[in-house]
């Protein structure tokens, strides 16, 4: 019973860590998702200046506007545009920085800003579209591997262990080969759960996530194994 409770606590803690990390990334994604529409909107403004573009972007675009608000405040304090842009340097969105740079340089160079912004919006949208299609393709793969390594594989092995234990019956304690195979099963389950976590982290593009995924899959796997196997070995 203690093992089951510890397993649930460990898996819960891992899930919380993972959720916290993913919430941060979700905000960056939300910001980036809004950039193409925001640039297209700015491209329709008459006589676009950096100031008018920033004023327009600083409201109505959710988290994107929250980031732009810093630039607006800097401009209000009389800081020159190029230095004001350092207000978004804390944001980890590469696309936002690129959009702002194109906006400012385009305006400064006297290029056709509307056309430029439409082009930039199209480029960024294309990049986001590829990322969406990547996620659509791989999310199912990632979760099926996590479910397999965290639940299905340990459950199948736990059930197998239970069947073997019933089959061998009282002779189990004297059967060295069967005992050796059964004692290796938790090791197998642990290695497979860790490799599933690494695989999921690689799909997310950040090996650091392996720790968080591992904090969920390893206890979950041992828990499923203990439940399916009737807690024979653990």
């Amino acid at each position: 019973m203690l093992v089951e409770i510890l397993g649930i606590i460990a898996a819960g803690a891992g899930a919380i860590l993972l959720l916290r990390e993913q919430r941060k990334n979700r905000r960056i994604k939300e910001i980036e998702e809004r950039i193409p529409a925001a640039l297209l909107d700015v491209s329709t403004l008459p006589n676009i200046t950096f100031r008018s573009a920033i004023d327009h972007l600083s409201k109505g675009y959710g988290p994107l506007s929250e980031e732009i608000l810093g630039v607006k405040r800097a401009l209000d304090r009389g800081i020159p545009p190029r230095r004001a842009l350092t207000a978004i340097s804390g944001c980890k969105s590469r696309l936002l920085k690129r959009a702002m740079k194109i906006l400012l340089t385009g305006i400064e160079s006297g290029a056709n800003v509307s056309e430029l912004l439409r082009q930039a919006a199209e480029d960024i949208e294309e990049e986001l579209e590829m990322e969406r299609s990547r996620r659509a393709n791989l999310t199912l793969q990632k979760y099926s591997v996590l479910a397999s390594t965290g639940v299905f594989v340990p459950a199948v092995l736990g059930l197998t262990e239970r069947m073997v234990a019933q089959m061998v019956g009282s002779g189990l304690s004297t059967n060295a080969t069967v005992l050796a195979v059964l004692s290796a099963i938790p090791i197998n389950i642990g290695i497979v759960a860790i490799s599933g976590a690494v695989f999921a982290a690689l799909i997310d593009g950040n090996v650091r996530y392996a720790l968080q995924y591992g904090a969920i899959t390893v206890p979950l796997a041992l828990l499923s194994y203990a439940l399916a196997g009737g807690g024979l070995v653990i």
């Binding site: 430029l116 930039a120 990049e127």
Partner: peptide, 15 residues
Amino acid sequence: PYFLRTLASEVDAGI
């Protein structure tokens, strides 16, 4: 593709 698109956008912007 992303390298080329970034380069194209920035060159068009006058960078």
